[in-house]
Design a protein around this nucleic acid. Structure first.
Length: 502
RNA sequence: GGGCCAGUAGCUCAGUGGUUAGAGCAGGGGACUCAUAAUCCCUUGGUCGUAGGUUCGAUCCCUACCUGGCCUACCA
């Protein structure tokens, strides 16, 4: 029991929310919900990254101001997360005053520490990438990513002396084992550091859409200081010391593997320079591929998560992305996989279990829930499911956590087959079996809430429990025997009607 | 070029220095009918990437290689 501060990356507002954003955000939400059930005081942050040249250009093209442009896109993210039932406690936009204040304080702190210095840089610059290239990177003089000509740029820039932090970073990682999950990702980080770190530019003077450096207003902060800093500015760095002290350091920065370098090397170095403790942990996920390929506009396989919600439901979608990918590796999103998971796990196992239990309780117990048997064989299954589910969420392995939880669902279906309460005359024996099943559903509702919150609440309600399942505590409320007799049990409409492949 | 990771049943993945390598889904057979043609039971299926080595014994340790992915590098 303690505090748990977790973050998603902030998403760049040059594109609408897509499956990749949704994946990271859903994983984060499940972690946040799980930790609330553990009794942790949770602060769950997400937001949008709104500065930079690309936004300025997009705004120019749209004939509007950068702020107005961002104002048009940022709500799309907030709305998407609302529809996906994301329980973020805060949503930060880098155009907010609290962020501006905090970023300037961070820059000043690094500057005062002597780690930000003026230098000149000349090189070939790709506007689209907002990055410099050397000759050999280019393909016939063009940017290798955008295939567009690069510009020769020479400008005075402020540089962050990342090169000074090699040893400190290595020392920090060696004294903080387990800070990165899955564990193998930390090898990449250490390998990168050992290759030698180069200073990076932290400002642009050709750009106006950004936060001016406090020590030189003719420059605006470049992406790293602007974007990464959201993790501290949102919790009061520079504006609310007490709040900041309460929440920092972050317990998990949930990120994708593509931004490991910035989050695990640049960011802790920046914090060290400013005299701030590095984050306590990172959870690094792979990509969610679509049909085996990286999602991209050119292949035309961009998936809009909101379209899927209409078809499969919020929880169907959440369950699929959480259960069908091993966190840390790449996952593959397919329509067939979505339907298959939905039918087998949600419709056939969970949904059907709830329905058959309700029906038998209706026929044999007068529609009123009965008490579970204290020494039911199901109790051991429940105990195993609880223990394994806890361990897997702890390890940030949602797919394995759900597998553990579903083990109890399967065991409950088997328990019913073994006892065949539908054949027996009403009486204590049937009451005990149905009480067992209801108790199992109660525990399942608690265990699956992090992944499928609306479903968990609906099961909770149908078996006659009052209040919010979200208020239950793990493991205290998962002890066998918590289901009280005498509650009305409702069958209701199928929660997950089977889908046929279109 | 260097580095990291992965390569286990048709698919997605677990797994351990040691008797017959596991789960879910898919496939096959059977049972049941309370339930969303759902469920339950049984079952087919794997030279554990390739070749060596260490060991009494390796899928798990070491070496090389192959394949895939990622990171990284100012060989013309």
């Amino acid at each position: 029991m303690g505090k748990y501060y977790l973050t998603t990356p902030i998403y760049y507002v040059n594109a609408r929310p897509h499956l990749g954003h949704a994946y990271t955000t859903i994983v984060s939400d499940a972690l946040a919900r799980w930790h609330r059930m553990l009794g942790d005081d949770v602060y769950f942050l997400t937001g949008t990254d709104e500065h930079g040249l690309k936004i300025q250009q997009a705004a120019d093209e749209a004939g509007t101001s950068p702020k107005e442009f961002a104002d048009g896109i940022a709500p799309l993210f907030a709305q998407a997360w609302e529809r996906l039932n994301i329980s973020n406690d805060d949503f930060i936009r880098t155009t907010e005053e609290r962020h501006r204040t905090g970023v300037r304080k961070l820059l000043q702190a690094c500057y005062d520490a002597g780690d930000i210095e003026l230098d000149t840089y000349s090189g070939l610059y790709c506007v689209a990438c907002e990055a410099y290239y050397v000759e050999d990177d280019l393909e016939s003089g063009n940017c290798p990513i955008h295939k567009k000509p690069v510009e020769h740029v020479e400008e005075e820039n402020y540089f962050f002396r990342l090169s000074r932090f090699e040893q400190r970073l290595l020392d920090w990682y060696s004294s903080h084992p387990g800070a990165v999950v899955p564990e193998h990702r930390v090898n990449e980080v250490i390998g990168f550091i050992k290759q030698g770190l180069q200073d990076f530019s932290v400002s642009r003077r050709t750009l106006t859409w950004g936060i001016p450096l406090p020590f030189d207003e003719s420059h605006v902060a470049y992406v790293w200081f602007d974007a990464l800093a959201n993790y501290i500015t949102a919790i009061g760095y520079g504006t609310d010391d007490e709040k900041f002290r309460k929440w920092w350091p972050a317990d998990h920065h949930v990120i994708g593997k593509d931004i490991v370098r910035f989050h695990n090397v640049y960011w802790p170095a920046m914090l060290m320079s400013a005299g701030i403790e590095p984050p306590a942990g990172w959870a690094v996920g792979g990509w969610l591929l679509v049909g085996g390929e990286k999602m991209s506009k050119t292949t035309g396989n961009v998936v809009n998560p909101l379209d899927l919600i209409d078809e499969i439901g919020v929880d169907g979608f959440r369950y699929y992305v959480l259960s069908d990918t091993t966190y840390g590796g790449d996952g593959d999103f397919t329509y067939e996989g979505l339907i298959s998971r939905y039918n087998s796990d949600l419709a056939n196992n969970l949904g059907n279990l709830a329905a058959r239990v309700a029906t038998v309780v209706g026929k044999k117990c007068g529609g009123t829930g009965t008490a579970p048997s204290p020494d039911s064989p199901l109790a051991a299954h429940a105990r195993t499911a609880v223990d394994d589910t806890i361990a897997q969420w702890q390890a940030v392995q949602p797919s394995r956590a759900l597998e553990a939880t579903w083990g109890l669902i399967r065991a409950t279906n088997a328990h019913l087959e073994t006892n065949e309460p539908w054949k027996a005359e009403p009486g204590p024996a049937v009451d005990a079996v149905m009480g067992d099943a209801l108790e199992a559903l109660r525990i399942v509702a608690i265990l699956c809430h992090a992944a499928v919150p609306a479903t968990a609440q609906e099961i909770w309600r149908r078996i006659g429990m009052t209040g919010n399942v979200a208020d239950m505590r793990v493991p205290a409320d998962t002890a066998w025997g918590g289901y009280p007799a005498g509650r009305p049990v409702e069958k209701g409409e199928p929660m997950f009607p089977r889908r046929t492949v279109a």
